[in-house]
Design a protein around this nucleic acid. Sequence first.
RNA 1: CGGGGCGUAGCGAAGCCUGGUAUCGCGGCUGGUUUGGGACCAGUAGAUCGCAGGUUCAAAUCCUGCCGCCCCGACCA
Length: 442
Amino acid sequence: MYLSKLFIPLLKENPSEAKIKSHQLMLKTGMIKQSSTGIYSWLPIGFKIMKKIEKIVREEQNKIGAQELLMPTIQSAEIWKESGRYDDYGEEMLRIKDRQGKDLLYGPTNEELITEIFRSSVKSYKSLPQILYHIQWKFRDELRPRFGVMRCKEFFMKDAYSFDLDDDKAKESYNKMFFAYLNTFKRLGLTAIPMSADTGPIGGDLSHEFIILADTGESKIYADKRIFDIDINEHQNNQPSINNLRRKYDNFYAVTDDKFKKEDFTSKVNKNNQLTTKGIEVGHIFYFGDKYSKPLKCSVDLKDGKKVYVKMGSYGIGVSRLVGAVIEAKFNNNIMKWPESISPFDVVIIPSLQKKDDLNFEKSKKIYDFLKNSNIDVLFDDTEDHLSAKFKKFDLIGIPYQIIIGSKSGENQFEFKEINGKTDILTIEEIKNKLNKKINSN
RNA sequence: CGGGGCGUAGCGAAGCCUGGUAUCGCGGCUGGUUUGGGACCAGUAGAUCGCAGGUUCAAAUCCUGCCGCCCCGACCA
């Protein structure tokens, strides 16, 4: 892609409405545009990053055997009346009437709908266990949206739902999701900690929030530092290994504000290991048994002919929120560096260009075509901005690798720079190999 | 929803108190000079001052209503 052709409305100054760095950066680099309070349009660069995050989330869900489907954004109020949440959910639910006066709502979550789908098609214990998920827009009419895409009304979320026969099996599904989440966040270049949390309006008695550390986070957290030493790579994708991983995390104290008790913290965690900080919630998993299957009468027949309500859990990841969360975690010293796995481009060519027919343009074009033909997603800054202006620009856009075409390299040599890191003089082949290695390691 | 604040060109601001038909920087466009950390010169385009009503000879400025947006709080992925 040539930069001159890319729809990327860059801003030089901070828009006055943005108060935190991820929001400012997303506006400055033309990733999003606010449409109304808490509602955003996603412009090409922002959309591309979000899609890459979505892809990783999807792959990790599929790995644990979850199956993707797609439920609508607009739901009928009927099933919500059945579960009792039509009244309980409150003002956060956006209620709509169609022209016949029928009560509809823009889905804030999907427990009711998935349960309705499941109960109408599954009748036998033989069909369990099952995990279903979708990645879809949600709407919650927040009292006060803020922080750009981190806390908005309309947001893109992966939500999964597990169906099991009994508590023990259900907890195995829960643990699978626990494992998938840790792998997902790791691939996004994030360190996420699972923490015991309150269940809120979803309900249930077992719940973990997955939190990444960031000063601007809304969640206050208390944890045992040793929790960061757990290596998920030591665990395989099978139930015993997954259960074992869950147990490892349970050994260390880690809670959010609402579950915090000072006595517990001081008695369970050695003073040197006590960590009190702030973080951003990027995922939340719940086990709530028959809370929805019972009122919605979602049961299956057992071997002996008896009926049992299915045991359910639900599992969310804020995909759109993650875009902002990654920036909060990765933006430092006014330089953004996207993890390779979700960068809007693999590499950018930054030439000094006086005129389009300059030798630098030919040299850039040569490596651009070569890399592009090698399936590398490359951006070519073909504008005539000053080189120094280009550097500033790409400090914000955050593409992790740069090829600089200026006066510091010979005819068949290229300056290859890792953003915020060191510069090497390499040949065209060496660059290709290096990039392929970086890309394929994700 | 309570408290506070803001709305002037694509972006950031000044002007408003003390009414006289809009100013500056960035960005855009043209030409020239520059070229390794947001360069310089010259020229040029771009605003029914959030909307509606009122006061006045005259309203960005004063008054009323509405809309939109931001911040703090309570609440939440």
